[in-house]
């Protein structure tokens, strides 16, 4: 009996907005993250990831508000990352409503931070984000500050070290593939997933259903983060005009120019496709006699 693979919408956040860029840069505003989060929750998302993409550079009060709003109405695990540097930063994000935190810059600068944070909050609360850029010689190196800053740290060694220090999961993001729709970096996923015992969440690159399947079956990912494919669906076909979603530059977004290389796919359909392809994942049954918080 295989395990259930998690499908995790990834929401990149800048200030109060959900954004999406290419290679973690060139950000477009898509709408309000809490609107998209609620929609994904109601359509069977297994978890959610919020990454504050500019938090290393600016302050993050608005992120706390977004987490707080989200946590009042969604009851699946929420991982929050971006600019968390201290134990107190982690505590305040958990207090706001996150279930887990993801650490990158602060952990690479001070690996002991992983040990300290996992002792205090439990390994299962600490996700290590590795932002990867493949070098000309084929080597995979970890970057910080959303792929902006070179560290020279080799990815596989860093993943193993993070595991030893107490990390509970690895969010493995290919900066090269992010926002391109050209598919996950399967070699990267396989290399890391085969070498650590903790779960690896593949991130960066899916543009169509087959890409998601490949990350799981060929790459051995334990979970997949998906952004543009899902966001595009929401904008293009979901009840974006129904008042369920806040105002945004809808016409421009609907034109699809932001999503040239992506097929729009709703979450339940992605899961159905995966199950047909032999991947085990949680089937979501909307029927329930308890409607949840008002």
């Amino acid at each position: 009996m295989a395990k259930n693979i998690r499908i995790i919408p990834r929401l990149d956040i800048k200030g109060p907005n959900l954004v999406k860029g290419i290679h973690l840069e060139g950000l477009r505003v898509l709408g309000k993250p809490e609107d998209f989060a609620r929609f994904y929750y109601e359509h069977g998302a297994d978890e959610l990831i919020y990454i504050d993409v500019v938090a290393s550079l600016y302050n993050r009060n608005s992120l706390h508000n977004i987490i707080n709003k989200t946590a009042q109405e969604i009851f699946i695990p929420l991982t929050v990352g971006g600019g968390l540097r201290t134990i107190e930063d982690i505590r305040s994000v958990l207090r706001a409503g996150a279930d887990k935190v993801s650490l990158n810059t602060a952990a690479i600068k001070n690996p002991n931070f992983i040990y300290e944070a996992s002792r205090i909050f439990g390994s299962s609360t600490i996700v290590i984000t590795i932002e990867v850029i493949r070098q000309a010689d084929g080597k995979y190196l970890a970057y910080i500050d959303n792929g902006r800053e070179y560290t020279g740290v080799e990815v596989l060694a860093w993943a193993k070290r993070a595991e030893e220090l107490g990390a509970g999961e690895i969010l493995l993001t290919s900066v090269d593939r992010d926002g391109t729709g050209s598919g996950y970096d399967l070699e990267l996923i396989k290399t890391v997933s085969d070498s650590v015992a903790i779960p690896v969440i593949a991130s960066g690159g899916p543009g169509k259903l087959e890409d998601v399947k490949d990350a799981i079956i060929q790459g051995g990912a334990d979970a997949v983060a998906i952004a543009s494919m899902l966001h595009y669906h929401v904008i293009k076909e979901a009840e974006f005009d129904s008042g369920l979603f806040s105002e945004g530059n809808v016409e421009f977004l609907k034109s699809g120019r932001v999503f040239t290389n992506f097929k729009s796919e709703p979450l339940p359909l992605i899961k159905k496709y995966l199950i047909d392809e032999g991947v085990q994942c949680r089937l979501y049954n909307e029927q329930d006699t308890y409607a949840g918080p008002k």
Partner: peptide, 18 residues
């Protein structure tokens, strides 16, 4: 267990829905 009967590595902890 960290290995299944076929000698394949099992991810521990279990993280996710079951």
């Amino acid at each position: 267990n960290s290995i299944d009967k076929a000698g394949r590595k099992i991810k521990v902890p279990q993280v996710g829905w079951n």
